[in-house]
Every structure is written in structure tokens, then in C-alpha cells.
Amino acid sequence: MKSLYLRTGAVALACALGLAGCGGSSGQLLLGGTVVGVTKDTLVLQNNGAHDMSITASGTFYFNDLIGIDEQYNVTVKSVPSNVDHCDVANPSGRSAFNVTNVIVSCVLKTHDVNATVSGLAGATGLVLVNGTTQVPVTADTASGALLKLGSVGEDQPYGYAVLTQPAGRICSIANGSGTMGSANISNVAITCVSTAN
């Protein structure tokens, strides 16, 4: 808490000396909190429909403009990064009595599907894939031209599917099973199984 008060004083001094973009603020209190789910430029927040704050990564944030004691504040989302579906704001508004540090902005990434073709399983059971901690059972070959949805991945996030458990009497391998999710579904993953019988 001591560092928070020191920061308040430092920001206020910088504003007074014209060393920071404080928008003419004459307040004494910080307004901010935490942002989660931001992985790329740029999330833009506003207080009371003005005083833009640009955020490029998850973490702690504070508006450049200080707010006054007993001042109404209302934090909203002006714009989101291209890979974000939406952002929700918890504790967005109120009247200040102390530094406001409990605003929480939670952003949800756009997601896209990872799809695969499956061949050679021939009714064998027990094939289980894994992506991180998520397990994906695979129970049958896909019909000609059909795709099996393995899961959904956030845009710009990595994925990597591997065989966790081989099916009885088969050895299965995966082609194109890892990468970074772009702005569209992935449909080139191929799961190929062969018999272990001589």
C-alpha cells in the first residue's frame, strides 16, 4: 500500500510539472485495477466517456488522469484487440474515497476449431489424443470428406495435439497437429492409423 501512495504522489507531481499526459487532471487519486486476457495490441479503456487508456498486455493498469475525492468514475471499453471477442468490466463505477484499484477487465479471445480427418482406425477402440491437459477420445474413422472437431483454440494461441493412448491393435500418428491459431478454423490435421498385426 505504501508504494501505491508513493505512486499517487509521483503521478500528481509529474502532472503538476507537466511531465505526464494528465489531461489537465487536478485529482489526487489513482483509478485502475487489473486486465486479464489481453495478448496483443491494443485494448482501449475510457473513464466517463473520455480519458482514453491504451493497454497492450494483461496486468495492472492505472489511468494517466488522476481523479478527485468523491468523484464519480465509470470505466468502459472503447475498443478491443483484433483477436478479442469481448471484454467485461467488473466494479466499473462508483464514487472515489481512496485510490480505486479494484476495476477488473476480463477479455475473452475469439476461438476457432481444430478439425481432423481420421483414417485406418477400423473400429479399434482406445485412441485418445491430448492438447495440453484436454483429452480427446477418437472412436471412428471420418467419412469421406468429413472432419472431426478436436476442439476450439483462442486466436493467436498455440495448440499441439499428440497421441496419449494408442488404440488396441493399431499405431496412430498425427500430421499438422501443432501450430498457432489464426483467424479461421484449422482443417488440415490428419490422424492415420495402421495395424500392428504381422
Rank of each mutant, 00 (worst) to 15 (best):
M1K: 03
L4D: 04
L4G: 03
Y5P: 00
L6Q: 10
R7E: 11
G9Q: 10
G9M: 08
V11Q: 05
A14H: 08
C15N: 14
C15H: 13
A16L: 11
A16R: 06
A16Q: 11
A16H: 12
L17Q: 15
G18E: 13
G18A: 11
L19I: 07
A20H: 10
A20Y: 10
C22W: 08
C22K: 03
G23H: 02
G24K: 06
S26H: 07
S26V: 07
G27N: 00
L29A: 05
L30P: 00
V35I: 15
V38K: 01
T39Q: 08
L43F: 12
L45R: 00
N48E: 13
N48P: 13
G49C: 09
D52P: 15
S54G: 08
I55S: 12
S58E: 07
T60K: 07
T60N: 11
Y62L: 00
Y62H: 01
F63Q: 05
F63S: 06
F63H: 08
D65N: 13
I67G: 01
I67E: 01
D70L: 14
D70T: 14
Y73A: 02
Y73C: 01
Y73D: 01
Y73N: 02
T76W: 03
K78Y: 04
P81T: 09
D85A: 12
C87G: 02
A90V: 05
S93Q: 14
G94P: 10
R95P: 08
R95V: 15
R95Q: 15
S96D: 13
A97L: 13
F98I: 12
F98V: 14
T101P: 01
I104A: 05
V105R: 00
V105F: 00
S106M: 02
C107R: 00
V108N: 12
L109K: 05
D113M: 06
V114T: 07
A116F: 04
T117I: 12
V118S: 00
S119W: 03
A122R: 14
G123P: 10
T125E: 15
V128T: 10
N131L: 05
N131F: 12
G132A: 05
V136R: 12
V136W: 13
P137V: 13
V138T: 02
V138C: 03
T139M: 05
A143S: 13
G145T: 03
G145Q: 02
A146C: 11
A146W: 14
L147P: 01
L150V: 11
S152E: 14
G154I: 08
G154T: 09
E155Y: 09
D156S: 15
Q157F: 14
Q157N: 14
P158G: 02
Y159I: 04
G160W: 07
A162D: 07
V163W: 05
L164V: 07
Q166S: 02
P167L: 05
P167F: 10
G169R: 01
G169V: 02
I171Y: 12
I171D: 13
S173I: 06
S173D: 10
S173V: 11
I174W: 03
I174S: 04
I174A: 04
N176E: 05
N176A: 11
S178M: 04
G179T: 10
G179K: 08
M181D: 00
A184P: 05
N185W: 07
S187K: 14
S187C: 12
N188K: 11
V189E: 13
I191K: 06
I191Q: 05
V194L: 10
T196C: 09
A197Q: 12
A197W: 13
